[in-house]
């Protein structure tokens, strides 16, 4: 089938089988390899992207649901201004080790930052925001520290991307 969708602001038209995974379309057809596959079963969060402005596990989204969808990936976000702050906070707090989970955590971080006015985000809310992301290396503590730091800063993250 032929599918028209928008990826990182660009309209694309692709040929795919109905059950092809969004993850493979991004990585193999569109060469957007920033999004990773850790499990392929919706459990690890390494493949997290925005679809129609909501976080999804791209390994669970079949091509047939992609008509006119608006997909935004880490590859389309790294050049935004706010991304600098995320990079800095992750770097300074030592939140990265092997890095395979990191793009997924960054996506969840972006989502948290745009949905939260700093007042009501405590450690519980942070933990909820990353409930779908698994990291085997860091023990999470330094990721939480990076996110806490970001929440205290006045970072403007758009409500929607490329719309």
């Amino acid at each position: 089938m032929n599918i028209d969708l928008t990826v990182n602001g660009k309209p694309v038209s692709i040929e795919a089988e109905p059950l092809d995974r969004l993850l493979d379309i991004l990585r193999d057809k569109l060469e957007l390899t920033g999004t990773k596959e850790g499990c392929g079963e919706g459990e690890c969060g390494a493949c997290t992207v925005f679809m129609n402005n909501k976080l999804v596990n791209s390994c669970l989204v079949p091509a047939m649901h992609l008509h006119n969808a608006n997909v935004v990936t880490i590859d389309g976000l790294r050049d935004f201004d706010f991304f600098r702050f995320i990079t800095k906070a992750y770097e300074e707090n030592g939140a990265v080790q092997c890095g395979f989970c990191t793009p997924g955590f960054v996506m969840s971080t972006i989502n948290l930052l745009r949905n939260s006015s700093e007042k009501n985000v405590g450690d519980e809310e942070i933990k909820d925001a990353f409930a779908g992301n698994i990291c085997r290396c860091t023990g999470y503590d330094k990721i939480i520290k990076a996110v806490r730091q970001l929440l205290t800063m006045d970072i403007k993250v758009p409500e929607r991307f490329y719309e």
Partner: peptide, 23 residues
Amino acid sequence: HSEVRVDAASKIAGIEKYTRDLR
């Protein structure tokens, strides 16, 4: 030393290449 890892930025941005990212 509490040096920032040399590979942190590329991993955060998703541009670090792992084996499956090689074309």
